[in-house]
Design a protein around this nucleic acid. Structure first.
Lengths: 365, 365
DNA sequence: TTGGTTTAATTGTACATACAAATATACTAA
DNA sequence: TTAGTATATTTGTATGTACAATTAAACCAA
């Protein structure tokens, strides 16, 4: 029995559903001819008008195609549900830091998976992230890779929730939010901070300045690694040596912190820059002040942004696998889009120290 | 008379068209109630089933909305035709050169116009551009901003034609193609090349090396500007001093050209680098070779990629308004999308020379 | 006032019937 | 063989009728 006349479900809809099932289950295959309307009248006992209504709906939905004189045929159900294959990328600024590399990693992997990417810049501002979230939703993206802004975890969580409420999966990249439910990809920042600091200590440095932003999980972890390494070496972290910034990176602000640290060259022998852009600022300021690196002061950075021009600025730094981070983010996003996997995926990639020539050794070993 | 029974056009379709016109012309305004089906039976003399068919179609098309007991109402015709508001950006590589700045300019202006942007990297390869063109078309973008690849003008024109055949407007950014029919935004590269060369000449240099790629319209024009400036100063351009490269930028290839030029420091006193990345390579190679800039050799670049770190590498260079170029590209694209304007728009932005400390003066004036 | 019930208007579903339009196929004539 | 013609099949359009479902609004009772 195809239709049940006692059901409260409209007869045309019962027939429509039945036909749709036959198609989806492959009973009627693409290009197959389904029974003529007259035949369906006999099979179902419905009026032709009712049958036509069911078929018309399926034609509008793209399941069937009608041809006069020949009959009604099953359409090729487009493998790619078409136009749904876009993912959003929300980053601080495509121009700065590791962002270009990250985006390229995402984009390449997306292309491999026949996905397109919509790019959104937040300038680390919550309201811009919000604005872009709206747009991404109205473009019905199938997933989002999100680098949290400089706003509070709460605000960033609000952004994420806008997507998750609509069943759009979100993967955090690089920076994380306090929320065990979220998927993310980042690097071992604590360990990286620890290693860099230990490297300096092993080179004989014990008074080590540090400057970074406490707004981001990444830099906070590096700071913790720095503190732990000092403690493990029996050195008490000196608050005087920590120039912590409470905002996103900006030249104007950091130049102050850098100048303070460079003014303490009699007290400290090394500076841990929260990331390479700060380190470059140190190079620049040091040059202006006639301080030479590494002779007068040692510097380490984090990111390894410009390995190509490293002999102009031979910065010892922690190389982060940014491109891979982008790829990995998209891979996890893909598995989320395809469904399955209920447990959260939290991937921590490994960085490695790249030794160049910005640190001098204070001891002969 | 709303319907003409002698017309070969189906009655339901005549009614449907009439209703649609009333809506589009504002006779029926959003949220207005249109006549009930029974009233339309009286007005038109058609059967209710026929009227229902017309209305059903318009409901499916988003023009009307039905509410039981209340009647049928005019829908708010979505100002944003939804999901059609995406533009494609096709660039060589989001990681390199001026591309991040360009993309950011496009993206910001796009956001102002409530457009989203899909990012595509070609690595200057034709086949990748082709691949992305397909994807952009299947995502039904409403326009494209395209930085031509390193392939021939013919191949690049093929890419453009894929879009124009589908009435998708394309704006070329930075690089141009020999084809007067195309819209583009670029800068005055000939003039820029001329000015930089004249600047060197005015500083007393007469034997000036140059290295750049002949694949791109931009660099070819700079070369022409260079030649013209030399001629105007009565200097015959020496092919020996021109290290022309027949491919896109790559460290491996350019390092050879750079080394050749740096090996001629007894013959030439200055080098015109086709763009800043080449200039950086010169700085790097010069450092390795113990050649100092500008004492041993003067260098000028083109782009002004890193004004922030200019005191580490005080390169005299031609500042291009890249961000503005991105904005301008999108503005022209917008006007194309909105229609109107049949004549091609070809905008040439002005660059300006930024004098730093990479050129020494050979004469006292 | 509150809360439930009835009523009437309007769209939604369903059926029977009729003829029109398109067109693949078979047939026919040059 | 070719070109035109008839035919049968199937979808497309159109009408008239009937009743169901929904629900705003009026009505009524506590």
């Amino acid at each position: 029995m195809i239709v049940d006349r006692n059901s409260p479900i409209p007869l045309y809809f019962q027939l429509q559903t039945w036909l749709q099932e036959q198609i989806e289950q492959g009973v009627f295959k693409p290009d197959d001819k389904i029974p003529t309307e007259e035949e369906l009248v006999e099979i179902t006992g419905l009026a032709r008008a009712t049958i036509r209504k069911a078929i018309t709906n399926l034609v509008n939905m793209g399941y069937l195609r009608r041809k006069r004189r020949l009959g009604t045929f099953v359409e090729h159900r487009s493998e790619s549900d078409d136009s749904q294959d876009i993912v959003g990328i929300i980053v601080p600024d495509i121009r700065t830091g590791y962002t270009p590399e990250l985006v390229r990693g995402i984009e390449d992997e997306a292309a491999n998976n026949r996905l397109s990417t919509i790019l959104c810049n937040t300038d680390d501002l919550y309201f811009k992230a919000n604005f872009h979230a709206d747009r991404l939703i109205s473009n019905s993206v199938c997933g989002v890779i999100f680098v949290p802004t400089a706003a509070s975890d709460d605000k960033n969580r609000q952004i994420v929730e806008q997507f998750t409420q609509r069943d759009i999966p979100v993967i955090l990249a690089d920076r994380t939010i306090e929320d065990t439910e979220l998927d993310y990809v980042t690097t071992n920042n604590f360990e990286g901070g620890y290693q860099l600091t230990k490297y300096l200590i092993d080179k004989g440095h014990s008074k080590i300045g540090i400057t970074l932003s406490t707004l981001f999980s990444t830099e906070r972890e590096r700071l913790e690694g720095y503190k732990q390494a000092l403690k493990d070496a029996g050195i008490d972290p000196d608050p005087e040596f920590m120039q912590l910034h409470n905002g996103p990176f900006s030249e104007e602000h950091y130049i102050k912190h850098v100048n303070i640290l460079l003014g303490k060259t009699d007290e400290i022998s090394a500076i841990f820059a929260g990331h390479d852009r700060i380190a470059y600022l140190i190079y620049s300021a040091a040059k202006d002040m006639g301080i030479s690196i590494p002779e007068d002061i040692s510097v380490v950075g984090y990111d390894d942004l410009n390995p190509n021009y490293s002999n102009l600025m031979p910065l010892t730094t922690m190389h982060q696998p940014i491109y891979e981070m982008g790829q990995e983010s998209l891979k996890i996003l893909m598995s989320r889009i395809k469904g399955g996997e209920n447990s959260t995926e939290q991937k921590v990639l490994k960085s490695h120290l790249v030794e160049r020539d910005s640190v001098c050794s204070l001891q002969r070993e």
